[in-house]
Structures are given as C-alpha cells and as structure tokens.
Computed example of a mutant assay.
Amino acid sequence: MHKVVVPSRSGIHRFACLALYRALLRQCSPIAAGDALWRGETESLIKQRFRRYKNLQSPSQVANALKSGYEALDLLDRASEGSQQDSGKLTAILAHTKTFKEQYAAKQRRMTELKLPKPVSPKQARKEQTMRFEQETSRKHPDALSILARPRSSLSGERKVPVLVNARGVPFLRIKKPQPRNLSGVIRTKLEKRWNRIVTRDRLHVELLFAKDEDAWDRLTNATEQSKWSEEVKLALDNVYEKIRETDRENRELAEKMWNVVLEERELAKKEQEQRQFEQLALQDKTD
C-alpha cells in the first residue's frame, strides 16, 4: 500500500514551492523587470495565485500548478531579457486577467443588486425589539404615575396582576417583560449604594482595631488627648449602621405597600373575571 503524502506537510514540496515563489518575485523586481508597466500587476497576480493554490491536495493539480509556475518563470525571464514576443504575450495575459476580474466584479455587483434581502430571524427580531425598548425606556416618562397609585379603577383591556420581586433586598413590581431600562438603573444604583456602605462598614471595623491600639498606647505613655482615637471611628461606624438600617427599613415598608397593591390587584382581577363570565353566560342565554 502506497504511503499517502500530504503536500502541505512535505518539506521537499514546501521547499520547491517557496523556491519557485521567490524566483517569480525576483523577476518582478525593478532590476530584473525592465518594463515597469506590467511589473506591479505581475507581482500582484503571482501572490494571488499562490494564495489560491496553497491548499491543493491532489497530485495532478499540484503538478499542473507547478508546471504553470515554471512556464511563467521562463516567460518572465525571456521578457526581462528584451524579447518583444514574450513581452507582448505577457501583456496580453495581464490584459485578459484584468478584463476577467472586471467582468467578474460587475457580475457580482449585479447579483448583489438582484439578491433579495435576507429575512430577519426570530432571534434577531427579538434582539432588535429589545434594543428599541431599552432606548425608549432609558428615561422615565414625564406623565408616568407612581407604582403605588395602583390599582386603577378601570382598564381598557384585561387586568394583569403585577408580581412582587425581591432584587437582593430592593423590592419592585414587575408588570411585564422586558424590564424598563430606567427601572434597572434605579435598582442597580440602590444596590451599589448599599454595597458601598457595607464595604465602608467592614473597613471601619478594621480601623477601629487600630484606633483601640492607639488609645492603649496613649494610656501606657500617659499622653493627654482631648478625645480618644476610637471615638471618631465609632461615630462613623454608627452612622454607617444607621444608614444601612434606614435603607432596609424603607425597603421593607415599600415592599409591604407593594404587596398590598398586589392583593388589591388580585381582588379586582378576580371580580372582573367573574363579571366577564357573567356577561358571556347572559349573552349565550340571550342568543339561545
């Protein structure tokens, strides 16, 4: 059984291809190429063809590509030596290649113009809808009522009972999804403020230990200080504790008010549902 040789992994094959590539580029150098009109186009064409054929695996295709490369090298060599026939042949090849590129580009432009727009996928449509909703709800509407102004006495459609949600200690009523962007910003701000106070509290606990050490040193050295080091730290610590407790108390009171709103909304929704069922039964009796 013959051993399968992958050209791209063969050192001999790579050496031959790189040698041919360097030789072709040398023929396109300003010294070797006397005609500067086709020098740049030839170099660009050589690089493009080598990039296109670098992944060839078929032995016959590799052999044909190398054969074409050596024929191009001979043609460039003769043209650089002043052969008018070979220079004309090289010019014709470059002109044909340029014309083919222009025709192909024009064909691609026509196909692009005739191509129907790609339909938007459901996932992309939902994503765009969410982005538009976030832009529309980035600021609070000037005529928006407080959430505690619910329940409303009358609605145009079916009443939707809000859900009380606890966002790490911050209560809010979710009416529907997606969540308004300004509401997310308010919740994030409250959580960051509470976390910063907790960080400050922990830092003051450490500073209180150092302050007590300073007071102990003052007692050992009989230093006469008007106030103790630990007093100011304790005052700051008590202040932070009071702010945290006050915020938690406000959130608890707000949660109780929101829960009362939910209960009232449930009661009204139940009554409205019974009223609709009664009207449907009355309509059926009337039609019968």
Rank of each mutant, 00 (worst) to 15 (best):
A19K: 08
R22Q: 05
R22N: 05
A23V: 03
R26H: 06
C28I: 05
S29F: 05
S29E: 08
P30S: 01
A33S: 10
D35G: 11
D35C: 13
D35H: 10
A36I: 08
L37F: 07
R39Y: 02
T42G: 09
S44P: 06
I46G: 07
I46E: 00
I46W: 07
Q48E: 12
Q48W: 08
R49M: 03
F50W: 10
R52Y: 04
R52F: 06
Y53P: 00
N55R: 13
Q57G: 03
S58C: 07
P59V: 02
V62E: 04
A63C: 11
A63R: 15
A63F: 08
N64R: 12
N64T: 10
A65S: 13
S68F: 02
S68L: 10
Y70A: 09
Y70P: 00
Y70T: 15
L75Y: 00
L76C: 01
L76G: 04
D77S: 09
D77H: 08
D77F: 06
S80D: 03
S80Q: 05
E81W: 02
S83N: 08
K89V: 01
T91S: 07
T91Y: 12
L94Q: 11
H96Q: 08
K98S: 15
T99F: 13
F100K: 09
E102V: 05
E102P: 06
Q103C: 14
Q103R: 15
K107H: 15
L114A: 14
P117A: 01
K118E: 14
V120E: 09
S121Q: 14
S121K: 15
P122L: 13
P122A: 09
K123T: 14
K123L: 13
Q124N: 12
A125S: 11
R126V: 11
R126Y: 04
